[in-house]
Design a protein around this nucleic acid. Structure first.
Lengths: 352, 352
DNA sequence: TAACATAACGTGTACGTTAACGTAAAAACA
DNA sequence: TGTTTTTACGTTAACGTACACGTTATGTTA
């Protein structure tokens, strides 16, 4: 409980500059009423002692709240992936709430670009001091991000990046490498000549660069490792199970030597269900810690799930904004989540 | 930027209770000097208006330094495992520094119980307000922990637990399950009849319950999975490479059908070196993200490393103490780290 | 030169909480 | 009874920042 002795803050600056704290305050806030000479002197001292304003005192003095606005996909019935980032955001929200941070949530429908634009408009209307964005639709997001940057509001991307748009940081997966990892895991459970099938299931495959990057990584691994296993790709645009079942069975008939599947997103549980129904014991690798996926992992129908800490992504994103605004530290330009392998023997400790 | 209008805080409580804020403060902090009647009245009002102290004001008012004391093994030349928790601790230290938290470091030698006791004594002498402890030596640690608990200093265990001793939380691995995972990974790359060898390398094996638990988990997996692969254990007490080499080669001669090794700690790189030297291509699974291990992972000599986020352990431990002391939230009684699988395809993103 | 304007700076109060300090009254003791 | 101790409070000065307002000094104009 030793009292601090360091001299910091406006008072110390004022003392060194032989002015009052009022003057220092004016310099800090770029208000007029200070001669150029004193302004320079004070700025010099600010540099010298590396002055970091005490955000606590500041918030206390201004007695205002900070609004953080979140714009992410809504949790759909089809996949509960976004519950995890949301949980992380909420947890972080609890922790920073006492610093006057209030989180406002806006959700959009992954099937509707219109809903994205609407939600973005609402978001901007409530004048947030920080924004967390999952830019699923590239063009629409880019437009919104440009406006955000004009307003000079700190912005964090989550789950997908818009590398050309300036932002505080991107927090999310590195897709290519995760595809490579999927390939390595697949190669563990197949023989020399076995065929492999990559399954992309998405209504909007053309816009879903996630899947493409993963497939590229997957194929690159086999290339680089000089593994000659034939790899075919099956694109499925209708995500309903009946339609998927039909496609998969057809493809299996055409490629009877397929021994392993790689599903490039979290819909791997659909494939697992189908394989189980037809008593198939193919190797199966897919994505994401969803309940329905975990069940098939325990079951043995899915061999590996790859996961990139969705909850942590949300948590870290809020924390990055908080730390930025409170001058605690600045994040890296991009934070790539570790690429985790989930098996039936380690899933229990994954989200504790 | 909306101004708050609510009437909250000690002032409002004092107004409602017809007392001064000083009295309210005494009630809030459970200090004496208040009659039971007023205390009750105030507590009632606190409940009523659901009083949440303003942490910013609080932090500002108690401009005190909090000393956190850390007692962990020193980074040895032999293994740099402890650099990772240390990094995590330092990072957390940076982040909480502006709340007046100062971290003091004490290190002990893993080969010397005496050094542990000495360091612990020094630590207690500087009257820390929170302690982070890696209780490697059970008896010595227990004695120290008892004294710490008498002093009512919040304490977090890291890496190993002392379940019988009260503590704020334990942050570290769950060893049994990690052994099971090692077994699953081993089973991926061996055939039906292949033999497996578990290698424990430790000068003080009897005290190293870590290794024992992992071995138990490993064997349990094979039992539960009805896999009949013979498993033998090789205990090596002399950790020098020459001695390990001799032991391993001897054991290999006696068990020529061994196709896979499981090294129960981070010294797996020693075994990798030996196997490489003798051109052996056994399957090899071991522990920890150390540089020397990663090199053999890239090399292909090690198939999998299991890792339990050492850096995060340190980070979370400090944060748990900080959040406890600042009433942000209380941790779970035990926080088991996810059991991560590191391969040559995902190690790059593990510690970013 | 008086009256006034403005630039440049200082002062005071507030934010909500903490804790040291002061004090009146009650209780304990001689 | 008087004296000391204890109990139960109230008062007040910080903490670092923000900002309205007050105060000089230095012009500028009538």
């Amino acid at each position: 409980m030793i009292k601090k002795v360091e001299l910091t803050g406006v008072k110390e600056i004022a003392r060194r500059a032989n002015v009052s704290i009022g003057t220092v305050d004016r310099v800090i806030h770029n208000r007029k009423g200070v001669s150029d000479a004193t302004r320079q002197k004070i700025n010099l001292i600010i540099e010298e002692i590396n002055y970091q304003p005490n955000k606590m005192a500041s918030l206390l003095a201004t007695k205002r709240n900070l609004n953080f606005a979140i714009l992410i996909p809504k949790v759909s019935a089809e996949t509960d992936y976004w519950t995890y980032p949301l949980n992380g955001i909420e947890q972080a929200g609890e922790e920073v709430k006492q610093f006057g941070i209030i989180i406002q949530y806006f959700f959009y429908d992954l099937d509707s670009r219109g809903s994205f634009n609407e939600a973005a408009e609402e978001l901007l209307n409530c004048n947030p001091q920080a924004i967390l964005l999952a830019p699923s639709f590239i063009e629409e997001s880019t437009a919104v991000v440009k406006r955000i940057n004009e307003l000079n509001i700190p912005l964090v991307f989550i789950n997908s990046d818009l590398p050309k748009q300036p932002s505080l940081t991107y927090i999310g997966p590195e897709l290519y490498q995760s595809g490579r990892l999927a390939a390595q895991l697949t190669s563990l459970s197949i023989a020399h000549e076995d065929e492999i099938m990559i399954i992309n299931i998405s209504t909007d495959l053309e816009n879903d660069h996630h899947l493409v990057r993963k497939e590229q990584g997957f194929r690159a691994y086999f290339n680089d490792s000089k593994l000659a296993n034939p790899i075919t790709t099956l694109n499925i645009y209708d995500t309903h199970i009946g339609s998927v079942e039909k496609s998969v069975l057809e493809a299996l008939q055409q490629n009877p030597n397929v021994q392993a599947f790689f599903v490039t997103n979290s819909r791997v549980n659909i494939v697992a269900k189908i394989l189980k129904k037809h008593n198939k014991t193919h190797s199966l690798v897919g994505y994401d810690f969803l309940k329905s996926n975990i069940n098939y992992l325990i079951d043995g129908q899915i061999n590996f799930l790859i996961c990139q800490r969705p909850k942590e992504q949300g948590y870290l994103a809020i924390m990055a904004l908080y730390k930025h605004l409170f001058n605690i530290n600045e994040p890296e330009k991009a934070i790539y989540m570790p690429i985790d392998i989930i098996t039936k023997e380690n899933y229990r400790f994954y989200n504790s």
